[in-house]
């Protein structure tokens, strides 16, 4: 393994310091915590929007801190959700008295730690609400699994909830629009290669030169299916079909699409995927209102991509178009 790091155990700490060094006017690190917040947090009169989870998904989460999106982001160890006390510290730092919405991705670790943190902050009289994003259509959602994962659709939840909060809406309203996104978004991902975590120093799973993984999450976990290599068009067809089957949209529906890179994929390849994706939207009679292409929610150095489709109405379109000023996303 070769990485641009010092000690594997120091990556998250040094990354956070390096982020603050890049955006000293925007970001502040909570003392003794692996938590970044807006430098002006808590913002008076505004519901706080916080997120967090394991590290290794950059620019998620802290890259989306700023006007119109997140107030704070907690960074766990690589792929390990942050501890409840860190989440609690973040929630309290982002509460200006209007309450805080926690955007949680559906992993047991995240959910359990956010639950505990919510209870802790609640004891300090913070009004805490939670939404759980579970957009990954690759995982069967049943009583006998831990449910669908939260993946790249989370970015849209951040954007919409952040915009609503910036308008001055109350906590219930902010939560409502966040859940509207969650109800209307689906994602599926694939990997050409495994990622390499700093601690392990070797690929999490072995993939042959002729194999790819379909239905991966964002933690380097193997996917739901291993197949032979396919062309970009074939991969796009497969991922998109699964997402559309899940969403079951009517012709004429407006959508926002995301082609998300897993971290090690050249941007040129993501555009090759987007070309096909937009052909498919057209073939299905869907209207692309906006197409995002880039690295939004990554898995370290993994090569691969995910495709997200979100059905949007006028309210969501307005909130997606509202200004945002963060290191990773500016609207």
């Amino acid at each position: 393994m070769k990485k641009l790091i010092n000690e594997p155990g120091d990556v998250v700490d040094e990354m956070l310091d390096g982020m603050v060094a890049a955006y000293p006017d925007r970001l502040r690190r909570l003392d003794g915590n692996e938590v970044l917040v807006r430098s002006d947090a808590p913002v008076a009169g505004k519901v706080g929007i916080v997120s967090g989870g394991g590290s290794g998904h950059e620019p998620t989460h802290a890259g989306y801190i700023g006007d119109g999106m997140l107030d704070g982001a907690a960074a766990g160890e690589i792929f390990t959700s942050p501890t409840a006390d860190q989440l609690d510290a973040m929630i309290q730092a982002c509460d200006a008295g209007e309450g805080v919405l926690c955007v949680v991705k559906n992993y047991e670790g995240d959910v359990m730690n956010f639950d505990t943190a919510g209870e802790m902050a609640g004891m300090e009289d913070v009004d805490v609400e939670q939404v759980v994003v579970n957009d990954d259509v690759a995982v069967e959602d049943s009583l006998y699994t831990s449910g669908r994962r939260g993946v790249c659709g989370t970015i849209l939840v951040h954007k919409v909830a952040g915009a609503k909060a910036a308008e001055g809406a109350d906590l219930a309203e902010v939560k409502r629009v966040a859940e509207k996104v969650i109800d209307n978004v689906g994602t599926m991902g694939m990997a050409l290669t495994s990622c390499v975590t700093p601690e392990k120093g070797e690929p999490t799973f072995d993939l042959g030169e002729d194999e790819i993984e379909l239905g991966i999450g964002i933690h380097g976990e193997p996917g739901t299916e291993r197949t032979d290599v396919m062309s970009a068009d074939e991969i796009t067809d497969h991922l998109t079909q699964n997402v559309l089957d899940d969403l079951d949209l009517d012709a004429g529906q407006e959508v926002v699409t995301i082609v998300n890179g897993m971290g090690g994929t050249p941007l040129s390849e993501l555009f090759v995927v987007n070309r096909r994706l937009q052909q498919l939207m057209h073939d299905h009679g869907l209207e692309t209102y906006d197409a995002w292409v880039g690295d939004y929610m990554t898995s370290l150095d993994m090569m691969g991509c995910s495709i997200t489709v979100c059905a949007v109405d006028d309210e969501l379109k307005d909130l997606l178009d509202a200004p945002a000023d963060t290191p990773a996303l500016k609207v």
Partner: peptide
């Protein structure tokens, strides 16, 4: 353990 582990195992073991 709660404040050092995180993940699923932190709350499960520690809590």
């Amino acid at each position: 353990l709660i404040s050092e582990v995180g993940g699923a195992s932190g709350p499960l073991y520690g809590g």
